[in-house]
């Protein structure tokens, strides 16, 4: 399969309190190399504060890297762009735009004419099951609905890679499960390339073709687990459980708090 996203030797060191006596360097990522194939669903899992968000935001072009290279379809990434769609943990919907206007924003940036924008937005509103909420402002929506809108917004302009940073982390267990199912359904239909960050082992295995395990800060790749299970996955199956154990062990097991 063709390489879609390629990250080579990526490192990031945050400089804090520059120009004060407390100036400090915080190494967040150390020499991360990762390749995602076209149409592959990859999840990154790691302990809290290990640099997962930092990694994803650098790939998104939203924060600068210290060293390393990032390529999408062989072209180096220098800043943010429409070839990547980002879904944030905090939803990040524009409160002053309706559901439809939020979804149209990216399409407008892409230069799609108004009439077409609306048709596309409607299609994606249907896809995430929000028909009837086109004209609602975000503050009237529940957390789960907001994240559905954010997913639709990022998918609508058809980026080459979808980047998701713990998108379901703020949701209650049931809503979270519903959105995981929805994302799996959408992915099976569209086969978009996805890089998905989480700290939840079951979520990682339920969704991924491959789980990439990060170490404690500074984040390094310590293991890659290819999940060879038919979709949609049965989270109560023996094999699912075996994968869960394997990922938990890579994260440090029961001692590290993973059980």
């Amino acid at each position: 399969m063709a390489e879609k996203l390629k990250v080579v030797g990526l490192s990031k060191t945050y400089l804090v309190d520059q120009g004060t006596p407390y100036a400090k360097e915080i190494p967040a990522l150390e020499n991360v190399t990762l390749t995602v194939s076209s149409g592959e669903f990859v999840t990154i899992i790691g302990p809290s504060g290990c640099g997962k968000s930092t990694f994803l935001m650098i790939v998104a072009g939203l924060i600068p890297k210290t060293t390393g290279e990032i390529f999408i379809d062989g072209r180096p990434v220098t800043g943010p762009g429409l070839d990547r769609g980002v879904v944030f943990q905090e939803f990040a919907l524009f409160p002053w735009m309706t559901v439809e206007e939020n979804i149209c924003f990216g399409l407008e940036m892409k230069g799609i004419p108004r009439k077409e924008r609306q048709e596309i937005a409607r299609r994606y509103i249907d896809l995430v099951g929000l028909r009837g909420f086109e004209y609602a402002y975000p503050f009237r929506l529940s957390g789960g609905m907001k994240q559905r809108v954010a997913v639709a917004r990022a998918l609508a302009y058809e980026p080459a890679v979808l980047l998701m940073d713990e998108p379901f982390g703020q949701l209650d267990a049931q809503t979270r499960g519903q959105l995981q199912k929805m994302l799996n359904d959408i992915w099976e239909r569209t086969r978009t390339t996805v890089l998905f960050v989480t700290h939840n082992i079951r979520e990682a295995i339920y969704l991924a073709d491959r789980v990439v395990v990060f170490s404690e800060r500074p984040g390094r790749v310590v293991e890659e687990v290819v999940v060879d299970l038919p979709r949609p996955r049965d989270p109560w199956s023996e094999r699912f459980f075996t994968y869960q154990r394997k990922v938990a062990d890579a994260l440090g097991g029961e001692q590290a708090g993973f059980f």
Binding site: L82, V86, G106
Partner: peptide, 8 residues
Amino acid sequence: DAARSMGA
């Protein structure tokens, strides 16, 4: 950031 990610 959300707006920038869409190339604003």
